[in-house]
């Protein structure tokens, strides 16, 4: 079971547009909300209202400062969740068969009843996509909302991952990356989508779109000082009177 399938029929995944993401964390909250009531054990929090709250999240947004060799730095909001890798190291290290990659759509899932909570899959993942649930002691990860995308009890427009559905900036896209004609594949081709840490050899399915080049205001001479207009009439008299007062 924890051997990877030689190939998958589809490669369902996300395309995340780093140009559009505004870093609002709505996808993070929406993910937690859906997944705490959906697939598997709830996503627990420890000390949620205390001094040091901590819990399991399947999606987190980091914010980076990118400083080019020349020119001003820019801020990039960076959502990160499971990339559903083609060559997922988290799957093959699993001793129990709890971790697996589905042949039909490529989604990487955890069968929580089989998980012994050894944590080795989290060590094997370069991206930090897996987190141990602090209450259930089983490994949690993004399911690509497997309980939404095929769910015939919800309206068609809701059959996509919660993070994609909720993104107010439309920075997240969901689709089949094995199909070169799908919207997501075309987006990746047009915008130069890239892999995270390709050197790890994981062949991630999820793709990231780079921020577009920024248009900078032209450097120009200082704008001319506003003309001083002499007031006349009553205002002019008040102006001159106040001037004399110092």
């Amino acid at each position: 079971m924890t051997s990877l399938p030689p190939s998958t029929d589809k490669k369902l995944g996300l395309v995340i547009d780093l140009d559009t993401c505004v870093g609002c964390h709505a996808c993070v909250v929406s993910c937690k909300e859906w997944n705490t009531g959906g697939y598997g054990a709830p996503l627990a929090d420890i000390d949620p209202y205390g001094a040091e709250p901590m819990g399991a999240w399947l999606n987190r947004v980091h914010t980076y400062e990118v400083t080019p060799a020349e020119g001003p730095a820019s801020v990039v909001h960076f959502p990160k969740s499971c990339l559903h890798c083609d060559d997922a190291p988290c799957v093959t290290v699993c001793p129990t068969g709890a971790s697996y990659k589905r042949v039909e759509d490529g989604i990487v899932l955890v069968e929580e009843d089989l998980c012994i909570g050894c944590g080795l899959c989290a060590w094997a993942c370069p991206y930090g996509a897996r987190e141990m649930d602090p209450a259930e002691n089983v490994m949690k990860k993004c399911t690509l909302c497997v309980d939404r995308i095929y769910n015939e009890n919800i309206p068609q427009e809701d059959r996509e991952p919660a993070c994609v559905r909720t993104c107010p900036a439309k920075a997240r896209h969901f689709g089949d990356l094995a199909d070169p004609d799908s919207d997501v594949s075309r987006l990746v081709a047009e915008r130069g989508g890239f892999d995270l840490m390709p050197e790890m050899g994981t062949k991630p399915v999820n793709q990231y779109l780079p921020p577009r080049p920024k248009t900078r205001p032209q450097a120009s001479a200082a704008s001319p000082a506003p003309e001083t207009v002499e007031a006349d009439g009553l205002l002019g008299w008040i102006d001159r009177a106040l001037e004399r007062l110092g």
Binding site: L18, V61, Y64, E65, A122, P134
Partner: peptide
Amino acid sequence: TATGLGHLGKVRLLDRPHTGPNYLTKEM
């Protein structure tokens, strides 16, 4: 390489995803 933003410049963390610690920071 982790963020794929190297072609734009040097990458530095500005804000963590959460103010507190998490499983990843505690474990790895």
